[in-house]
């Protein structure tokens, strides 16, 4: 947005972007200080408010998306408690706990990244964004290598792919449908989040964020918190309740 608008407003100022009279157009100054809000906002705070509200509304849609999975879990757990207890025993709570800790730490890191943007601490902003990315990666490695791969090998799969050789109660494939569905949709959110952190990291390296402008850090950070919170509900629901 910024680059497009700079061009649109630039002509009358002899080619200099924007029309701020406080020296903000001086190209030697960092991007986040020169940044102009999009033309339909009054100023940067106004834009920041709107962006934040938009992200919160988006988070509401995320909660409602996952609510479908939680609702299906509750209904089928009531219908087939045994299948759910047995199925849950196949999960190792230690991996789940480790992933919970990883995500909680990553939530701290991304919150710290926002704080460092506010205080213009560029080095630690980048480090924290990168750490959050790494946490997402670690989460996925544990999920895929140590959990999904094992279940796949044992045939603990949803629906018609279920081919487990050992003891099983009736309707256990349904438990696996819930498990794979809920964790799979969650994992896809982790992957999207990692992509967003790459984008934020690349921009932070170019000095895009600082006290005057950190919309993207804040927005992606909020998104990451919801990914974390959903997992905090999934972990006890799937791993701990027997």
């Amino acid at each position: 947005m910024a680059t497009i608008d700079l061009g649109k407003h630039g002509g009358g100022n002899g080619g200099l972007p924007g029309h701020d009279h406080h020296g903000a157009d001086d190209l030697s100054r960092p991007y986040h200080e020169r940044y102009h809000a999009a033309h339909h906002f009054e100023d940067r705070e106004h834009e920041f408010d709107a962006v934040k509200m938009g992200v919160w509304l988006f988070l509401a849609t995320e909660i409602l998306l996952f609510s479908g999975m939680f609702c299906a879990y509750a209904i089928f757990r009531l219908m087939y408690p045994e299948a759910f207890v047995n199925g849950s025993h196949h999960l190792d709570w230690r991996w789940g706990l480790l992933n919970t800790v990883i995500l909680l730490m990553s939530s701290y890191w991304v919150a710290a990244a926002v704080r460092h943007a506010q205080t213009n601490n560029q080095k630690w902003l980048q480090i924290n964004v990168f750490l959050t990315f790494l946490a997402g990666l670690a989460f996925l490695i544990i999920k895929f290598v140590f959990e999904y791969a094992k279940k796949y090998k044992e045939g603990l799969l949803p629906g018609k792919f279920y081919s487990f050789g050992g003891d099983a109660t009736a309707h256990e494939p349904l438990w696996w449908a819930i498990y794979w569905g809920a964790t799979g949709i969650h994992a896809s959110h982790v992957i999207v989040g990692m992509g967003l952190f790459v984008w934020v990291w690349l921009r932070s390296r170019r000095g895009h964020f600082g006290p005057g402008h950190y919309n993207a850090v804040e927005g992606v950070g909020l998104y990451w918190h919801i990914v974390d919170i959903v997992w905090i509900f999934l972990f006890p629901m799937l791993y701990l309740i027997h």
Binding site: L65, S67, G68, A72, M79, G159, P173, L174, G181, I185
Partner: peptide, 26 residues
């Protein structure tokens, strides 16, 4: 978003036959 998850589950049901909406699988 609720129709989102519903249609997603319907697609899973059709492609992978996960059984959430299939009475034969509970």
């Amino acid at each position: 978003p609720v129709i989102g998850i519903t249609l997603l589950l319907l697609i899973f049901e059709r492609l992978f036959h996960i059984g959430i909406f299939d009475p034969r699988m509970g």
